[in-house]
Amino acid sequence: METQPLEIQKKQYAKIVKEIRPKPPLLRNLAGAFVVGGLIAVIGQIFLNLYQGLGLSLQEAGAAESATLVFLAALLTGLGVYDEIAKVGGAGSIVPITGFANSMVSPAMEYRGEGLVLGVGARLFTVAGPVLVFGIVTGWAIGIFYYFFR
């Protein structure tokens, strides 16, 4: 192995690594993601029904429901519980809007020591920034397209 060209060494090594490295427990992860993601959606649905029952329109109730979920996720992140849920939930706790809130609070909280402006203020957008950028740019492009071709 020593005398072989680096590219071949790399390929051979990648093979050994692949053999030895444990595979992700796919079925368990998928089950975790399904259950946790599903449950978060159900909690959202409960609030949605609740707010509609209080007389809000569907759209308003949806907004209020999002805000509630975000609040809960921020709280659980602060209490150090959300990352424990994510251990089981994986993508099930990343993809819901609660994961979005978690991705905002977690860096902001840890960089608190760097001050309110550059620590908290800037770090809130470590992940949220890109999400908003790509979401808004896509939305804008859809709007432009719709404006000219509707």
Partner: peptide
């Protein structure tokens, strides 16, 4: 349409980062 969610995330995120300390 997303204003409520975004504002909620920023406001609650801000206060959570200030009130809590990472474990």
């Amino acid at each position: 349409t997303t204003a409520t969610g975004i504002t909620a995330a920023i406001v609650f995120g801000y206060f959570a980062s200030i009130f809590f300390r990472a474990k």
